[in-house]
Design a protein around this nucleic acid. Structure first.
Lengths: 342, 342
DNA sequence: TACTGGTAGTAACACGTGTTACCTAGAAAC
DNA sequence: GTTTCTAGGTAACACGTGTTACTACCAGTA
């Protein structure tokens, strides 16, 4: 069964008895060109009959546009594996793209070989790049931006002019820690979501610090342990934290997944949550509500983040310009039983 | 700063002082054509100097190949949100594609408007389609396959000849339930991962049934409750199950995420796990090890699934043919404390 | 000398589309 | 009668690439 050759606009023109130009005019609804109603109908009918779909390669070639955005994930495979957050973000990006008639090309890259995505642009595969998890040392990125390539970041990159969309993680972290303080805790530890080379980790740490200082509490570097996306890192970090005396009475874990490991460490130590140790997480993954006990955490608009980033990147590609250079989405504290008993 | 016009093979030819044909020959390492070493070097040097990257649109147009595969996700947004499994699968697909020089176009579609992906093929956007979560009523899919379009399924579709890669979920479920039986349980309930219209749900139910029958136990339809991907559905299903008397002493939940909700319902009912109620899950999401108690579950090779599916689709696209029509990957039971105390 | 054969390279076509500049016939204006 | 306009449509070019058919040259035969 030889698959039928795909039909081209020439076929349509032939069947409709007009020129290919006319076919193009009709099918693209070109303005400022007059086509009689009867011709227009003949063309549409012919296109329908032949099941004509314009070949994108041809369109791309002549227009120089690919109507595709590259979604570049800089996270390590380890992080991608455990990121319950990612599907939502991607879906947001995707739906923003679809709405504008764009496609999404997925490109996870090894964070170490940064810049591996440049060929996407140079080969004209995509019209713009949406970068998730930008790295500080990614010089290729800045160069690309200076060349005028449309780029949108999900997450911030200090000291650059590249526009971004991000969640206001600092405010979110501050809210979580303030919540713990308001419950009477004076000695509060922290476990980061990732090594501090990641800006997302730094932001959350800053929020933690601001909350402490705002309440007149001291900021003690030694109460911070480092996590790296995984529950097991949370388990170990929490175990370390429990060694410190006087013991903290509450802990802010800057990732729900990491917090899952921390919870286990606390229980293993024979402590009750929240009576002996209050816990607040970050991300509000779908499972957080079902942790034992249900996890107090900061809800991030994951879908909205993806959607906003996608929509703004496409506006950039269209050359429409942004009314605000960058965007910070609000996060929201969700208080559950891991921090206090109702 | 006007971004420099991208250079073309004509530019390279001009700079190297040769014809464009020669440039093409050199850069593509065409066999059976002789180019002197000095010319070859001149071309490569010129390409490097101009930072030349061949425009894919041109390549696509002339070759008819796009070197891109479409990763179509038929899951509902609800499912995608809670699917901790998806990132691993995607990463597997992606890395298989990269290794073969292919790209991945992401296309989540509303399961209700099936066939929305056909335009990807018709417009020559992709060379083949990798479909995750095929629906039974998707007639467009079969038609596409009959037209000779390379298609690979992740998950099975009975009564079709479309090749697939899947996890042997039936065997996995059977192993989990047999495990519970071996621990002395005689009355074992089940909560499905999804409505039974999904083949993945049916497979797991079949495994449950086979394990019971193999052990000489009766298969009681009324001990099966339906879940739908979410923890909350698991909570409700488990609550229903606890109403039935005599009460089951063990439950097989065909999804770890759903099991999370079930665990909560069991605890709320004042029952101990595993002493009063043994639980086995399915999927082995990264968090399963950190459930309270750690969840006995069936490990699925998520990354391997994506990798195998991607690799085989590309082989199909290349016209290389498959030595086996379809592939079933092995799953593996991981026994943890939710089913028994060491 | 004339023929073969290999090496090094090129002109020209094809892929499918968008778009610009042009053409024609008829009607309207002068 | 001549010019001007408009509606309706087309020929021809451009986009950047891969590839086939061909040429030009030179060395080695017979």
């Amino acid at each position: 069964m030889p698959s039928k050759k795909r039909s081209t606009s020439t076929d349509v023109a032939k069947l409709a008895g007009v020129s290919r130009t006319t076919v193009s005019f009709v099918l693209n609804d070109v303005l400022g060109v007059s086509i009689s109603d009867v011709t227009r109908r003949r063309v549409l009918e012919a296109a329908r009959e032949l099941d004509y779909h314009p070949n994108v390669a041809g369109k791309k070639l002549v227009s120089g546009k690919s109507y595709t955005i590259g979604l570049v994930l800089c996270q390590s495979p380890e992080q991608i594996f455990t990121d319950a957050f990612l599907p939502q973000v991607m879906l947001g990006v995707e739906q923003a793209a679809i709405q504008q008639g764009f496609h999404v090309l997925l490109k996870p890259i090894d964070p170490n070989e940064a810049g591996g995505y440049a060929s996407l642009i140079r080969e004209n595969h995509v019209d713009g790049i949406l970068l998730s998890g930008p790295r500080q040392d990614d010089t290729a990125l800045v160069r690309l931006h200076e060349e005028g390539v449309p780029i949108m970041l999900m997450g911030q990159l200090p000291d650059t002019a590249i526009p971004f969309v991000d969640v206001d993680a600092t405010a979110g972290a501050q809210a979580a820690v303030s919540h713990l303080i308001s419950l009477g805790h004076l000695r509060i530890g922290m476990i980061t979501n990732a090594p501090l080379t990641y800006t997302s980790a730094q932001q959350r740490r800053t929020g933690y610090r601001q909350a402490l200082l705002a309440a007149g509490l001291s900021f003690d570097e030694s109460l911070i342990q480092e996590g790296n996306y995984t529950p097991s890192s949370g388990f170990e970090a929490m175990s370390e934290l429990l060694e410190i005396s006087p013991r903290v009475t509450a802990v802010f874990v800057a990732s729900d997944v990491v917090a899952m490991g921390a919870l286990l460490a606390i229980k293993r130590a024979g402590l009750r949550i929240p009576q002996d140790m209050a816990v607040a997480g970050f991300d509000d993954i779908p499972l957080a509500e079902y942790f034992d006990p249900p996890l107090t955490t900061v809800h991030l608009p994951a879908y909205g983040l993806g959607w906003a980033a996608g929509e703004r990147l496409i506006r950039l590609i269209r050359g429409e310009g942004l009314n605000e250079h960058s965007l910070l989405l609000e996060s929201k504290l969700i208080a559950r039983q891991s921090s206090f008993i109702a």
